[in-house]
Amino acid sequence: MRFGELKAALDIPQAPAILLRSVSKVYLPRESGSSRGRPVKALDRVSVTIERGEFVAITGPSGSGKSTLINLAGCLDVPSEGAVYINGNLVDGLSGNELSKIRRENIGFVFQTFHLLPKLTVLENLTLAMVLRGHLNHAEREEHARSLLERVGLAGKERNFPNELSGGESQRVAIARALANDPGIILADEPTGNLDSRSGRQVLDILEELNQVNRVTVVVVTHDESIASEAKRRVRLMDGRLERVTIPEPTSEAPLMESA
C-alpha cells in the first residue's frame, strides 16, 4: 500500500469549521441593558455543526437567538453552558485577548451596519485588520488591501472615507476587511439588512463566490427568505431553540420551505 493510499484510508475526517454543542446563553438583567426583569434565555441547548466550506443560513424571527448564535460562533461572546469548537479547538475559559487572537486568525465579520472606522480611509480600514494581526509589513499590507478591494469591485476607492461610500460599497469594504487575514470562516450578521436589493445582490454574489471559489465557510444570519433559500443548508431558530435544519434539494427551483 502506498503512503497516499494509507493516508486516505486512515484519514480522520477534518474537524468542522464551527461546532456548537448544546450551547445555552442566558442574559442577566444587567447584561441585557435593563435594570429590572428576569434573566433572558436567548439560546437553549442548541447544537449546530458547520462543516468547512459550507454556506449556511441562520434564519428565524426577531428575538429567536440568531445573533446570539453567530456571536457565540464568532467568539465575540461566550456561552453560559455548552461548548464551542472552532476548527476542532475548544473555545472555553479563554481570556478576552485569546479570543481576540482566535478571531483575527480564523474569523472575518460582516455586520449589518458595516462598522467601518469613520476616520480611517478605506485602505486604512483594511490594513488595520492586518496591523492588529501584525504579520505583514507596511507595503505588503497595502498591496494585499488593494487586491482585496479589486476583488470586491472597489479599486480606486482606497483614499475615500466611509462616509463617501454608498451602503453597498461600505458593505463590500467590510467584506474585504473580513478577508484581510485570510480567515477560513466568514460570519455575516444581516449583511444585506441595510441595503437596497441590487446592492444586497452584489454582496451576496461576493459571499457566494468566496464560498464556491475559495472554499471559505460562510454563515449568514438573515430573516430574508430569498437569501436563505440560496444557502445549501438553513438553520432555523425559534425562541432560542433549534426549530429545524433544512437541506434544499439541489435540483429544486422553487423555495422548499414555506415561510414561517
Binding site: G96, F111, H115, L116, L117, L128, A129, L132, R133, R177
Partner: peptide, 16 residues
C-alpha cells in the same frame, strides 16, 4: 464604544 467593539471584533486585544 462601537469602534472599540469593531477593533476587538476584527482581532484587536485589550492592549491594542
Amino acid at each position: 464604544t462601537g469602534e472599540i467593539g469593531t477593533i476587538k471584533a476584527i482581532g484587536g486585544t485589550s492592549r491594542d
